[in-house]
Simulated scan of single mutants.
Amino acid sequence: MSVPADTIHLMSESDTASISSYWDAAAASFDDEVDHGLRDPQARRAWGERLRSWMPRPPADVLDLGCGTGSLALLLAEQGHRPVGVDLSPLMVEQARRKLTAAGFDSPVMTGDASDPPAEAGHSFDVILVRHLLWTLPDPEGALRRWIGLLRPGGRLVLVEGRWQTPTDDHPYAAESGPLPWFGGVTAERLLQALRPLTADLRTEPLTDPDLWGRPIHDERYAVIAHP
């Protein structure tokens, strides 16, 4: 679904408050999902292997946007990288900080709009990692442009995405938030279409291994690795 240029916008204050509250309410049980908490050794190993294949040699400066409770940031830190996490939910951020601190890492994690990362997160990264965030954004294509602008020469944008739901209407997932162009996920072809004018090199990788999700997957799951 395309959105007219005059309706594209960053999240308003009411959007931000509503969506932050939505994810705060989910924070306590968020890690119960196999691919969120990575408590299952097979899932943890599977995501660790994928991250290792997508990242440059450590240490790399990695901006983890929509970091949730910090499970991927922790894997990155364990692999020798320097992750910085950003999430809109203060309760998710608290959990991520505790998780990293308990493992002996002082990686910064901060509350902020991942679609337009706060200045204190930094301005230049080797990698920007984003997992299952684009569907939550009112202007996903604008976010892609902003993220690519934060990459150093030779950097890469790693997007873990999928199309898992076909919405029957345009109702937002959080009360008072605006319409979402990619609600329910985005197909690989649609995402590649958005990225082609912004990047010099693109590749996609299917993510259908049940170990990643704790169950067999019957919808579209994939990663896109983009180099400007």
Rank of each mutant, 00 (worst) to 15 (best):
S2A: 13
S2T: 10
V3D: 01
P4R: 07
A5C: 02
I8E: 08
H9S: 12
L10W: 05
M11Q: 12
S14W: 01
S14N: 03
A17T: 13
S18I: 06
Y22K: 11
Y22S: 04
Y22H: 15
W23S: 12
S29T: 15
F30Y: 15
F30V: 03
D31H: 04
D32Y: 06
E33S: 14
H36T: 00
Q42L: 15
A43D: 04
R45E: 13
W47D: 03
G48I: 05
L51C: 04
W54L: 07
W54I: 00
P59R: 10
P59A: 10
D61N: 14
V62W: 01
L63C: 05
G66W: 10
S71G: 09
A73F: 08
A73P: 06
Q79E: 01
H81A: 06
D87S: 12
P90H: 05
M92W: 08
V93K: 02
E94H: 08
E94K: 13
E94W: 07
R97T: 12
R98Y: 00
T101H: 08
A103G: 11
A103W: 11
D106I: 14
D106S: 15
T111V: 15
T111L: 14
D113K: 13
D113S: 10
S115H: 07
S115G: 15
S115L: 09
S115A: 15
P118G: 13
P118K: 13
A119D: 12
F125M: 12
V127A: 05
H132Y: 13
L133F: 08
L134N: 00
L137D: 04
D139H: 03
D139Q: 02
P140N: 06
P140C: 09
E141T: 12
A143R: 08
A143G: 03
L144Y: 04
R145N: 06
R146N: 04
R146M: 11
W147D: 03
W147F: 10
G149Y: 14
G149E: 10
L150S: 07
P153L: 09
G155A: 12
R156A: 14
L157S: 02
V158T: 02
V158Q: 01
G162M: 06
G162A: 02
Q165C: 00
Q165F: 11
P167C: 02
D170R: 15
P172M: 10
Y173E: 12
Y173R: 11
A174D: 04
A175G: 04
A175C: 02
S177N: 03
G178W: 03
P179H: 07
G185Q: 10
T187K: 10
L192D: 00
Q193I: 14
A194K: 02
L195R: 00
T204G: 11
E205A: 05
L207I: 10
L207G: 12
T208I: 09
T208Y: 02
P210M: 14
D211A: 15
G214M: 12
R215T: 12
I217M: 15
H218T: 15
E220Y: 08
E220P: 09
R221Y: 09
V224P: 02
I225Q: 01
I225H: 00
A226P: 06
H227K: 13
P228T: 00
P228R: 01
